[in-house]
Computed example of a mutant assay.
Amino acid sequence: MTEAQRAALKAASGWYARLCAGDSDTHEQQAWQHWYDADELHRQAWQQIEQLREQLGLLPGPIASSTLRGVDHGRRRLLGSLALVGLALPLGWFAWHSDTRRYWLADYRSGVGERRQWQLSDGSQLMLGTASAAQWHVDGQRRLLRLVSGEALIQSLDEARPLLVETRHGVVRSEGARFCVRSDEQGCRVAVLEQRVEVAPLRHLQAMQPLLAGQQLHFDAERLWAPRANDAATTAWTQGSLIALDQPLGEVIAELARYRHGVLRIDPALAGLKVSGSFPLADTDRALAALEHSFPLRVVRRSDYWVTLVPKV
C-alpha cells in the first residue's frame, strides 16, 4: 500500500466516524462530498470502509471511531486488513452506486431503531423505518420518491401527477394510495393498505401490474411474485412492534437485528424454531429476554454490541 492510499484510508475512517456520530449537519455532509469527489483514492478508500463496516456488524459511530481510529498499532493492523479487503472486492459490489453515500446525501433519513415521519412538499405523508433513507423530487410531470434503503409507509395524494416510488429493484406507481415499501439487497416488498398501486420490476418497467388494497407482493429486478393477503405483521413496524406468526426464529432475530447496533447472531441449531408473538422494536433487549423466557435458548452477551442466541443446555 502506498502512502497516498494509507492517508486516504485514514481520512475515510475519520469521515465515517464523524458521519455516524449522529450530529452531522449539511455543511459537514457537503464537506464529505467534496472530499469524496476530489480523488479516486478517496472513493476507493470509502468503499473499503463500507466493506469493513459490514464485517464489523454496522457498529455505531462512537464504537466505529474507537475501532477504526484506535491506538497506532491497532490502526496499522486495521489498515492492513482494509488493504486486503479492498483487493478482494469484486468490481460489481457497488453496482447501485454506494448505499452509504446515498444514505448520507438523502433528503430524509432515519437512524438504527428509529421511526420518523415527514410531510412531503406535495402534502403526501412519509414514515421511514429503521436505518432507512429516501430522496424526493417533484417537477411538472411527476413526483418521485427514491427509496435508497430500508422501509417506508407512504400516504400519497390523489392528483394529476403520479407518485413513483423507485427502488433498486423496480418501481411502484400510486395515485392516492396508502402503502408500504421495503427494499434490501435481495428484493422489494410492497403492501397496499388503501386504494391501489401498480408495480413493475426494473427489467420490465413497461409491464406495470396492479396491486389492490389488502394485498402485498415481493419482487426483484426480474419478476413479480404472486400477490398474497396482508396480515397483522404487515404494518406492525409502523406501531413499533414485530409480530411473528409461526415464523422461524432465525427470521425473527434477523428482523430484530435491524433495530439494534452491533451484531446479533443465532446458533444455526435454533434458526428453524417456530415462534409466534409480538415483540417491541424500541427495546430489543426486552424482546430477547422474552424469547429467552419462552424458548429453550440462552442470550450470551460478549458486549452490548455482540449478542448471540445459543441452545440452552
Rank of each mutant, 00 (worst) to 15 (best):
L144Y: 09
S66K: 15
L153R: 14
M1I: 14
D246N: 07
D107M: 02
D304A: 15
A131T: 12
A213S: 06
S149L: 07
H73A: 13
G22E: 07
S65L: 11
W32V: 01
G70H: 00
A160L: 10
K312Q: 12
H261R: 13
L212Q: 13
G92W: 01
W96R: 13
V275Y: 10
S24D: 12
L120I: 02
E54I: 08
T26K: 14
K274V: 10
Q125K: 00
L309H: 06
P311Y: 05
R143H: 04
L193G: 07
E159A: 11
I253C: 09
L164M: 08
V313W: 10
Q239T: 15
S121W: 10
T284D: 05
A152Q: 03
A232F: 10
R301V: 08
K274E: 12
Q117I: 05
W15V: 01
A226W: 07
I49G: 02
G92A: 02
R298D: 12
P62I: 10
A11C: 07
D220P: 02
G111A: 05
A271Q: 03
W136F: 05
T284H: 01
L84A: 15
L270W: 11
G86E: 01
V252S: 00
S241E: 15
P60M: 04
R286E: 15
L144C: 06
S98Y: 04
A282G: 13
W237P: 11
R301A: 03
K312C: 11
A207P: 10
G22N: 12
L68I: 09
M208K: 10
L256V: 14
P90E: 04
G129M: 06
R69L: 15
V300H: 13
V192S: 00
T235N: 11
L153D: 04
D139L: 02
V275E: 05
S241Y: 15
E198G: 00
A233I: 03
Q186S: 11
G70R: 00
C188S: 12
R301F: 13
L256C: 03
E185Y: 03
R43W: 08
L309E: 05
L153G: 07
A160V: 10
I49S: 03
Q206M: 14
E54F: 09
T167V: 02
G240F: 00
D283A: 01
H34F: 11
L205E: 07
V199D: 08
L245H: 12
W306D: 15
R258H: 02
G150R: 04
M208L: 15
V307A: 05
L157C: 07
E3K: 15
F179C: 01
A160W: 04
P227N: 00
A191S: 06
D267P: 12
W306S: 14
W93D: 09
A7L: 13
T284M: 00
D37P: 04
L89H: 03
V171Y: 14
L144N: 11
S156D: 07
L153F: 06
R102I: 09
L126H: 00
A95Y: 12
L105E: 10
A200I: 06
F179K: 00
I243N: 05
A11D: 10
S174R: 01
V112E: 03
Q209Y: 13
A17P: 11
V300F: 10
Q125H: 11
